[in-house]
């Protein structure tokens, strides 16, 4: 009997090498079919007729208007949800009250509502036949098929993003530091700004990042309330659809490629945050 260690045994928690190889092969094959190839298709189709054609499609006035509208909508919806998320997480994580779990469920609600339904509800409220329809027409206020409804629908679908990120984070951090600051004579606002905010800033950034990606990319909800007026109420995703339906595949994929870049930048930032701040960023599944 030798103990030369020629036969290297497998640890109890380790899979046999052939199982590892099989699983990795299946994973790579699956992710290639479902994720990698679609991502690649966007860029190859966008550049199928060369850089110039793609660039022209993005510079075309309707496209520029769509880009501007998308940026504007995100610039309103994201800060709105950030403020909401901070308020909600402060009330929920730093205080004890009855009905807390139910409130969290309500905040999560938009995640389980179809985007189309999210658009539909605003049509029912602000549309010509809706609750405020007559009043809005009398006062010549345009909400539906205009910027306000697009912003509202976007806020609805991205409503839980920041709150969901901050609530568990703040709950985990507890109230000891805030109580210490208050007992040392700091005001409530000062305590929030100097103690709480620095503790949750990476979590906030993470939530904002995901919120922004969804806000810029939302299709279903916005599609229902936008009215699809070219150059006026078309966001980038809607513009992609219009070009695609017009059989302008190159144009559609050129604008889509811009949105893809947004997604890639989001993923890179997200991964960087997760690596740099593993304790506060991205511990929840969405």
């Amino acid at each position: 009997m030798s103990s030369a260690g020629i036969r290297k045994a497998r640890l109890a928690t380790e899979d046999p090498i052939w199982v590892k190889a099989l699983i990795l092969t299946l994973v790579v094959a699956f992710l290639t079919l479902v994720l990698i190839l679609p991502l690649g298709v966007v860029f190859t189709q966008a550049l199928a007729k060369g850089w110039k054609v793609a660039w022209a499609a993005v510079r075309e006035p309707d496209a520029v208007a769509a880009i501007k509208l998308t940026l504007l909508v995100a610039a309103i919806a994201v800060p709105f949800n950030a403020v909401f998320g901070l308020c909600a997480s402060w009330a929920i994580a730093k205080h004890d009250f009855r009905g807390k779990a139910f409130l969290i469920t309500l905040i999560d609600l938009p995640f389980s509502v179809s985007p189309v339904v999210a658009g539909l509800i605003y049509v029912l409220v602000f549309g010509a036949q809706g609750w405020f329809g007559d009043w809005l027409i009398d006062h010549d206020i345009k909400i539906l098929f205009a910027l306000p409804a697009i912003v509202l629908a976007t806020i609805f679908v991205t409503f839980p993003f920041v709150a969901r990120e901050l609530i568990p984070l703040m709950q985990e951090q507890g109230v000891a530091e805030e109580e210490a600051a208050l007992s040392l004579g700091a005001s409530g606002l000062r305590t929030f700004l100097r103690v709480t905010a620095p503790n949750v800033r990476w979590g906030l950034l993470y939530g904002v990042l995901l919120c922004n990606a969804r806000a810029m990319g939302e299709f279903g909800a916005v599609s229902v309330v936008s009215g699809h007026i070219r150059g006026l109420t078309n966001t980038m995703p809607l513009h992609v659809q219009i070009l695609y339906d017009d059989n302008d595949a190159t144009g559609a994929f050129a604008v889509a490629a811009l949105l893809c870049l947004l997604a890639v930048v989001t993923l890179v930032l997200k991964t960087t945050l997760e690596v740099a701040q593993p304790d506060v960023a991205g511990r929840r599944a969405h």
Partner: peptide, 24 residues
């Protein structure tokens, strides 16, 4: 227990060498 394996040396149960036998 066979939950780690030595880099060198030998472990025997009675006369049986179990140095690289799996835990099971």
């Amino acid at each position: 227990a066979g939950l780690e394996f030595p880099d060198k040396g030998q472990i025997a149960f009675d006369a049986q060498d179990v140095t690289f036998a799996g835990a099971a």
